[in-house]
Amino acid sequence: IDAAQIVDEALEQGITLFVVNNRLQYETSRDSIPTELLNKWKQHKQELIDFLNQLD
């Protein structure tokens, strides 16, 4: 699994991931984030931050 897949998966569930001051953040209108997704974010945090920083 790679960062792009995780970002896409989040988007499919209505969650936008982004980076502020090198910290992973998210925006969503959902009430809660699925635990499975949160765990993936934690496991791949640095990859996600690097990936999202490249997009900007």
Score class of each variant (00 low, 15 high):
D50P: 02
Q54M: 11
D8P: 01
E27R: 14
W41G: 01
Y26V: 06
A10T: 04
K40Y: 08
D31L: 10
N22C: 11
R23Y: 09
D31A: 11
D2K: 10
D2S: 13
Q25I: 12
G14L: 04
W41E: 00
I15E: 01
L48F: 02
N22A: 07
V20M: 09
K40S: 04
V19I: 06
V20F: 10
L52S: 00
D8H: 15
Q5L: 10
Q46E: 09
H44E: 01
L38I: 10
H44D: 01
Q13N: 12
S29W: 08
A3N: 02
L52Q: 00
L38K: 06
V20C: 15
V20E: 14
V20I: 11
L11D: 05
Q5M: 11
F51K: 01
Y26S: 03
V7F: 09
N22E: 06
N22M: 07
N21P: 00
S32V: 10
E47M: 13
D8R: 15
A3Q: 03
S29T: 11
Q43E: 13
A3F: 10
N22L: 05
K40Q: 08
E27S: 14
N39L: 13
R23E: 15
N21L: 06
A3L: 12
Q46N: 11
K40W: 05
Q25G: 11
P34M: 03
Q5V: 07
L52A: 00
D56K: 11
P34D: 05
E36K: 06
I49A: 02
V7Y: 13
D31F: 06
N21Q: 08
R23N: 15
Q46C: 08
D31Y: 04
Q43G: 06
T35H: 10
F18D: 04
L38W: 06
E47V: 12
T16R: 15
N53D: 05
N21E: 11
V19L: 07
Q54I: 09
F51V: 02
L55H: 10
N22P: 01
L11Y: 10
E47A: 13
L48P: 00
K42I: 14
L37T: 04
Q46I: 07
Q54Y: 10
E12C: 13
E27P: 02
R23M: 15
E9N: 04
Q43R: 10
V7H: 04
D2C: 15
I33S: 01
N53T: 13
Q25C: 15
L37N: 01
H44Q: 03
L17M: 05
P34I: 03
T16K: 15
Q5P: 03
I33D: 02
A3V: 13
E27L: 14
P34L: 03
Y26A: 06
L55T: 10
F51E: 01
E9Q: 06
Q43V: 10
L55E: 06
E36D: 10
Q54A: 14
R23H: 14
D56L: 11
A4W: 08
V7R: 04
P34F: 02
F51P: 00
D31E: 11
Q54L: 12
F18S: 13
K42P: 02
N39T: 10
E36A: 10
N22D: 08
I33E: 02
Q25T: 08
S32L: 07
N21D: 14
V19A: 05
V7M: 05
K40G: 02
Y26Q: 02
T28M: 04
L38R: 05
K40C: 12
E12V: 08
K45Q: 15
K42Y: 14
L55C: 09
V19P: 03
W41F: 15
V7N: 03
N22Y: 05
T16E: 07
D2Y: 10
F18T: 12
K45Y: 15
Q25M: 15
L17E: 01
Y26N: 02
Q43K: 13
Q46P: 04
V7D: 01
D56I: 14
R30D: 05
W41L: 13
L52W: 02
L24Q: 00
L37G: 00
Y26C: 10
T16P: 02
L11W: 11
L52N: 00
